[in-house]
Amino acid sequence: MAACGGRESASLDAREHDCMARAMYFESNRSSRDGMIAVGTVVMNRVDSPDFPGTVCGVVGQKRQFAPGVMSRKMQGRSVALVREAAAAVLRGERHPRIVRARFFHAAGYRASYNNMHYVLTTGGNAFYEKRRPEFVTQPVPLEPLEGITGRSL
């Protein structure tokens, strides 16, 4: 039987926070708060989708969805504290306002030949997109990078 608000819950929260921080650390340009918040928003959009696992760790730990070693490599350096702050903000409910329904992203310099990618934002070194039927794609190429939308800059 799970304890209500006890150590089990605190341990789960700490694990979800660590998984979110890992996704942000290994997938974003760690000098861009917007990039970290955007990655976190994609993670939460996946958590809320029936197409993906229903937990942050489930989403981040999915094979071939995030950077290799995202769950096992060491996070180090000055940026770790910044990443943890951004992870906490997303878990408290902050979202990047330009992401909305996007559940996918790739490195900003990558060019895919798919016709179902509707781009909504480029920030923190990544291009974020929604998958749509081709006839509903109105932004088929990544947008110019945009920074400074979320909270304080790092």
Results as ranks from 00 to 15, higher is better:
A87M: 06
M44V: 01
V59N: 13
K74T: 10
K74H: 15
M71S: 02
M44R: 01
S153H: 11
S113G: 14
A3F: 08
G77M: 12
S79L: 04
M24F: 07
H17S: 08
I149Q: 01
A38C: 10
M24A: 08
G40L: 03
A112S: 14
M36C: 05
I99K: 00
S79D: 15
A3H: 13
V80L: 07
F104K: 00
A112M: 12
R98P: 00
R33V: 06
A81Y: 10
E94L: 13
L143Y: 06
C19H: 05
D51M: 14
V120Q: 08
R33Q: 11
R132C: 09
G5W: 06
A81L: 10
G58T: 06
R111K: 02
H106V: 09
A38Q: 08
G40A: 07
F105R: 09
V70Q: 07
A89W: 04
G61T: 05
R22F: 03
C19V: 06
M117C: 03
E16F: 01
Y129I: 09
V56E: 09
M20Q: 07
P97K: 02
L12F: 07
Q139T: 13
M20F: 08
F66L: 10
R30C: 10
F52C: 04
A23W: 10
S31F: 05
A112K: 10
F128C: 14
E147P: 04
Y114R: 15
A87G: 10
S49G: 01
A112L: 07
Y114Q: 07
V60G: 10
E85Y: 08
P97E: 09
A38P: 07
R101Y: 02
C19Q: 01
D34Q: 09
R152W: 00
R95T: 07
H17K: 06
V39L: 06
E16A: 01
G54L: 09
L82P: 00
S153Q: 15
H17W: 05
V47R: 03
V60F: 04
C57H: 04
S31I: 03
D48M: 10
E94T: 14
V56C: 09
G77F: 12
D48W: 05
V47D: 00
S31Y: 14
E16Q: 12
N116A: 14
T41R: 02
R22K: 06
Q76M: 12
F104W: 08
M71Y: 03
T138P: 05
V80D: 11
P97V: 02
A102K: 07
L12G: 01
I149G: 00
